[in-house]
Design a protein around this nucleic acid. Structure first.
Lengths: 337, 337
DNA sequence: ATGAAAGCGCTAACAC
DNA sequence: GTGTTAGCGCTTTCAT
């Protein structure tokens, strides 16, 4: 059996290709009887319109791309769930690209999205991203783009974020209130807004609360893979005067803090209080249970996708004017008690 | 500035479209000087060949699909990382479809992969999947397919799995050795080979070790969402005679067991020993640390993708004859001590 | 080394 | 309500 296509099906049914095409898309121009004939034959001969021929002709791909740092992180997993839920409802396909924090890869992937491969793009940038050119290029091609969580400040585009500053602020306040004297904010980037904003909230709270607060040491940067990060954190925990409070700006760091403490036999919360921006499911059953700034990851993904679809529909509700903010929730557990 | 395409670029450069096409793909037919002219112009005018026009003409999409139950599960996240690593190296694009254990969705997604949308498919089936017709259809279209982890027994195709039977067997032995008298195997499906094989290994070990072992009660099925699962597990933990050992066949169940125990104030491992098939990163820092059958998730994904690419290259190394098996590692931690 | 032209499978404008 | 046909942007013979 040869590969079926619209022309073969047309000749089998003695109908024109135009009629088939319209019937397949359930056009009102076609009679119900003909539609039924076409659908039945399509099923019988296993005919599905070639999506790329269709994309070429209609200049729509029915596909969106999601570019993000990684998937093995509960925040991003949940965000993908949200995105997928919307895409699926719209009959759209989702291309996933993982940058693993490499700017080079991010640029390559963004460029891959040009020339009609996708109708829209959702992106959470890498911790390395400093230049906006690759994104600007995409915008010049009129491909809608929506940032979620990790946005890029210099670019004007719709963005879906959480209340990073506030949460940084409240995290610091909580630790101070619990008696911490020497607190560090663990960051993964000097440029990512999620980090700088959370850090700024943290710093402002500290400056308000602690006299002679020394900003310069309060932010501790952790780059590299998990092992490097753990070593780096171990160094911090061994330094004097003893650090007694930590705000982890992302999930990954919190886990490394716990592992380092386990090795060093540092008791949480007795010797060290920890709170983390995290959606990790196991937070309540960790040893000890982890206080978290729980981000609405699913809703951030969902909302970003919904905005992207309105943009792709050619509508503009002014989303680019101001980031959409979905608040996080601070859940205190044993790690800060 | 109008949308660029090969014809416009050709007329700008006073070169034929054929030459442009060949130059863009670095054909040996084209002189270096011409190639350089073309590449420079392509950069200057932001020209990228339309991928769908190319796909239509060449009948290759440079895209693979991954269909899996969910992404918010460390096993699948890691598998996706492995898959993506291979795809990226080959310059391929990855479409992701999440079934959330719905067979209907799985069928829809598989059908979406027909008609040249993808060059190949990686799939981990839902716990509901019982009929192979949707997959068979794809095979009839000669689209290569590779199963990873959750395979479908009735279909002949390459499969990448782990040593499920052995690990089920050893898990049971471990719990017996640690003194458990009343052990349950928590399963999510009566048909999924990963469950039935793990269960069979478990049952065989139990039958060997325990006199008058009652098979009928030993497997406990958990379906539904997390809350339903937790309620169901709570019921089990409250029943008499007291269950004192649990093998969780998937990660998700282990977390629910911990949460149920927390609520019921059941002490692990004193009152209940737990071991789980899981790759969860937080296993060592749970309260108590969780003994796991740690699956080589990244390698399973990577290996499945590699096999898919050999198939798409038209090679056949007989992978379909026998599943590729990558062994898991049992790591005992405090939850079974 | 370069170019002309056919055609991948589909859609949409237009004719009937 | 159905059919004819041009052409989406590219690749690939086949000529030159």
């Amino acid at each position: 059996m040869e590969k079926i296509n619209i022309r073969k099906l047309a000749s089998i049914l003695n109908i024109s290709v135009a009629t088939i095409s319209k019937a397949m898309r359930d056009s009102h121009e076609i009679s119900d009887a003909t539609k039924k004939r076409v659908w039945d034959a399509a099923r019988k001969y296993n005919y599905t319109p070639n999506p790329y021929a269709s994309s070429l002709r209609r200049k729509k791909s029915k596909t969106i791309a999601v570019i993000l740092p990684e998937v093995a992180d509960n925040f991003f997993s949940l965000a993908i769930n949200g995105i997928q839920a919307v895409a699926e409802a719209k009959g759209y396909h989702v291309l996933i690209y993982l940058t693993h924090e490499s700017f080079e890869l991010e640029r390559t992937f963004v460029e891959d999205c040009c020339s009609g491969r996708v109708d829209g793009l959702l992106i959470s940038i890498t911790s390395e991203t400093q230049t906006p050119d690759h994104i600007a290029k995409l915008q010049k091609e009129n491909i809608p783009i929506v940032f979620f969580d990790r946005e890029f400040e210099q670019i004007t585009a719709p963005k879906v974020v959480t209340n990073d500053y506030d949460c940084g602020y409240q995290s610091a306040k909580l630790l101070v209130q619990r008696g911490c004297k020497n607190i560090r904010f663990l960051s993964i980037s000097e440029s990512l807004p999620i980090c700088t904003k959370r850090a700024q909230g943290f710093l402002d709270a500290m400056a308000e609360t602690v006299k002679n607060f020394g900003e310069e040491e309060a932010i501790y940067y952790c780059n590299g893979n998990n092992e490097q990060t753990r070593d780096h954190i171990t160094k911090l925990l061994l330094s004097r005067p003893k650090v007694d409070g930590i705000v982890a700006s992302v999930e990954r760091l919190a886990i490394q803090v716990y592992l380092a403490c386990q090795e060093l036999k540092i008791k949480i919360p007795r010797n060290l209080r920890v709170i983390a921006f995290s959606t990790v499911e196991t937070a309540p059953i960790l040893n000890p249970s982890l206080s978290t700034v729980t981000q609405p990851a699913f809703d951030i993904g969902k909302s970003a996708a919904e905005i992207l679809f309105t943009l792709m529909a050619g509508k503009d509700y002014g989303y680019h004017k101001k980031p959409v903010m979905i608040p996080s929730q601070i859940i205190e557990r044993d790690s800060t008690k």
